[in-house]
């Protein structure tokens, strides 16, 4: 760091941190701790899935074949691509390329909307067919015992994931607005990095949800 930094206080430095390095270290550690709790949250859901799949193996297999595989594949490609673009946004702001960063964030947000739209169409089809969770289940094509539990797990897992997509997208929109207002540069970009980390977690969860729900 240049000597002028010692005199002019860094506007991004909170008063309870001695240096910006310590603050950056702490916020990154805090973010990874939070991501750890997210892993544990979804681990509980995956565990519930595994137990019911073990109990109703055939019903889960049959019910999974009634999901729209192409919608699942498209959404996987959309999320993986959005993960790339958010990583490129971080890479751009790290080099001070504000416009490229904003462009990549806009692309990521468009991907998030696309994901939600495809998921919404899938949900709509399932609602119409009666493949609903719990006592509302009245899907005529899959009547095996336990199929109703498959759809309960399906809606819970993809619903919680979709909620994370909405939260992640909102965070990225907020970060984009700050990028456009020139809040970040190559000397301060931690919020872009942390927003990106959250978005990657959304991708990580889907990487496991996709084969477990669509390909069993």
């Amino acid at each position: 760091m240049s000597s002028s930094d010692a005199h002019a206080p860094n506007p991004h430095l909170a008063h309870h941190y001695e240096t910006i390095e310590k603050q950056d270290y702490a916020v990154r550690l805090g973010m990874w701790l939070f991501l750890g709790t997210e892993v544990l949250l979804f681990a509980g859901l995956f565990l519930g899935y595994t137990v019911y799949r073990h109990f109703y193996h055939e019903a889960f297999h049959e019910a999974s074949r009634h999901l729209d595989l192409w919608a699942g594949i498209t959404n996987t490609v959309v999320l993986i691509t959005s993960s790339l673009s958010v990583a490129l946004a971080y890479n751009a702001i790290k080099q001070g390329k504000t416009k490229l960063c904003a462009g990549m964030l806009i692309f990521t947000i468009v991907c998030a909307f696309t994901f939600l739209a495809i998921k919404g169409i899938e949900y709509h089809h399932k609602f119409q067919e009666g493949a609903l969770p719990g006592k509302w289940y009245h899907y005529a094509e899959v009547t095996a015992p336990g199929a109703n539990l498959y759809y309960t797990v399906y809606f819970l897992a993809t619903g919680l994931h979709a909620f994370h997509v909405i939260v992640g997208m909102s965070i990225l929109i907020w970060i984009l607005s700050r990028v456009l207002r020139g809040h970040f540069s190559e000397s301060y970009y931690v919020p872009v990095e942390l927003g990106g980390l959250y978005w990657h977690l959304v991708d990580l969860v889907w990487i496991f949800l996709f084969p477990l729900l669509y390909l069993i």
């Binding site: 993960s83 790339l84 958010v86 990583a87 990106g196 990657h200 991708d203 990580l204 990487i207 496991f208």
Partner: peptide, 10 residues
């Protein structure tokens, strides 16, 4: 896939 995302994207 998850390992690739964690190691390189994250």
């Amino acid at each position: 896939k998850a390992t690739l995302v964690v190691l390189f994207f994250m």
